[in-house]
Amino acid sequence: MLIKNLVKLTAIAATAVASIQASAADYQVDIKGAHAFINFKIKHLGYSWLTGRFNTFDGQFTWDKDQPNASKINIEIDTTSIDSNHAERDKHLRGKDFLNVKDFPKASFVSEKIEFSNATEGTVTGTLTLHGVSKAISFPVEKLGEGKDPWGGYRVGFEGKTTLKLADYGMTYNLGPASTHVELELLVEGIRK
């Protein structure tokens, strides 16, 4: 009796594990542990780089290494959380000359198509909404790694980079000819739900 039940249980467990492996799993971007970053980088006067980041955002994605092209990702950014390590500059960046966070407190990215050309490198296409302007963008993404974490969870991490023209998103404040574009960097680690 006991042995019979054990066999049954094992079979159920095995089926469950198999079904998890077969379908893409949902991941929560690890914002709690801050293992995810949205950084930006823009030339200052053409002489140097200025970097900053958005401190508050949220995101989910689905991922299955056997079916990478079935992946999806969405990210929502709190634009008021911009942080360039200078309060007066951040105030300016939140104001009407740039992000206008009063009218556009959120920016978002929702993927439409994700195509991997090999196990780790792919291209993400989707809609970026920033400063009230929605545009289709496409950018390269790399899977950095995945596996069990030391605390009983399962994690996977990606890196994506793209360059935006500020004027495309209605931000036309003149920062000089070398500073018309900003580089965005998305570094995410997701924890399997």
Binding site: N85, H86, A87, E88, D90, K91
Partner: peptide, 8 residues
């Protein structure tokens, strides 16, 4: 408070 918000 504006100018000193980041500790500067």
């Amino acid at each position: 408070l504006i100018s000193t918000a980041d500790g500067r």
